[in-house]
């Protein structure tokens, strides 16, 4: 798909209509997003205590403290199964928001999200970890959070530790880990769950070069088994070599979806333009 912004919308509309028929073998979608809008509330001087809220309500008859703004507006696109889909865009464009919508933790204000199969996030590595516990205890805890029975986790532990190269630190509380070690454990645990759709948000920066190579290997084997990766990154070089498609997100809307090189080119051009206007003003 190499569409210019103008016919991109058209292109997607036909796709959107054809969702149900699109079930030809080989072109199944891993993720289907249609007309998704996420309205955040930005609070101005919101009272943060019950006391202030009551006072505000009684004294000033003030109940509404927010303005809404759309972090995503009317986003429609599909991610075919087995692809690496990259998402780029400047800070605050809505990339993380989009991943949260796909992960199912942020219900969109409007629109629908459909994920075929299981989905897992590498948004914050080691999110379910407890700093007081050691690696093994944390593997159990995080496995249990994903409803894995203890016996099954137990079988996987050696492999997870080996991948993370933390065998020697397996019984050290993870609060004594370096941030790279922490990230390695987080990655190893998540990769081991082998979800159908893996969401990655800017997390590969922490590990050292060797570990990053390892992660890429995991991604490769992951893709080889027909799974899908959605990856948000600011390291454009890495992304262009990995991704099958890149979507360029700008202020909550896709301005381009398609060929990685073109997406990056447009992103740079857009960036350049904003900088120009900033300098002039």
């Amino acid at each position: 798909m190499s569409a210019s912004p103008a016919n991109l919308v058209e292109n997607q509309n036909t796709q959107a209509v054809g969702f149900d028929q699109a079930a030809e073998p080989g072109v199944a979608n891993a993720v289907e997003i249609s007309n998704v809008t996420v309205a955040y509330r930005s609070y101005k001087e919101r009272p943060t205590t019950l006391k202030e809220t009551v006072i505000g309500a009684i004294k000033h008859r003030k109940f509404r403290y927010y303005e809404t703004f759309n972090a995503l507006s009317n986003v429609t696109f599909n991610i075919p199964k087995g692809q690496v889909f990259g998402i780029i865009g400047s800070n605050g464009a809505g990339k993380s928001t989009l991943l949260k919508v796909i992960a199912g933790v942020l219900p969109p204000t409007r629109g629908t999200v459909k994920v075929n199969g299981s989905v897992d996030s590498l948004i914050q590595l080691g999110a379910g970890f407890d700093a007081e516990l050691n690696a093994i205890e944390n593997i159990y805890l995080s496995g249990a959070l994903h409803k894995k029975p203890r016996a099954e986790i137990k079988r996987r532990i050696p492999e997870i530790l080996e991948f993370a190269e933390l065998e020697d630190f397996a019984t050290t509380p993870i609060k004594y880990y370096s941030s790279g070690m922490f990230a390695r454990l987080g990655f190893a645990v998540a990769a081991d769950r082998n979800p159908d759709v893996l969401l990655v948000d800017e997390v590969l920066g922490v590990g050292d070069e060797r570990f990053r190579k390892k992660c890429e290997k995991v991604f490769e084997s992951f893709l080889a088994s027909g799974n899908t990766i959605v990856i948000v990154s600011h390291s454009l070089g890495n992304l262009s070599s990995m991704a099958d498609q890149i979507g360029l997100l700008s202020r909550g809307e896709f301005t381009y979806i398609g060929d990685p090189a073109t997406a990056i080119e447009r992103y740079r051009a857009q960036d350049y333009k904003t900088r120009l206007t900033q300098n002039n003003s």
Partner: peptide
């Protein structure tokens, strides 16, 4: 919060 930010449970 960190868990709830990425895992729908």
């Amino acid at each position: 919060a960190k868990i709830l930010d990425q895992l729908p449970i």
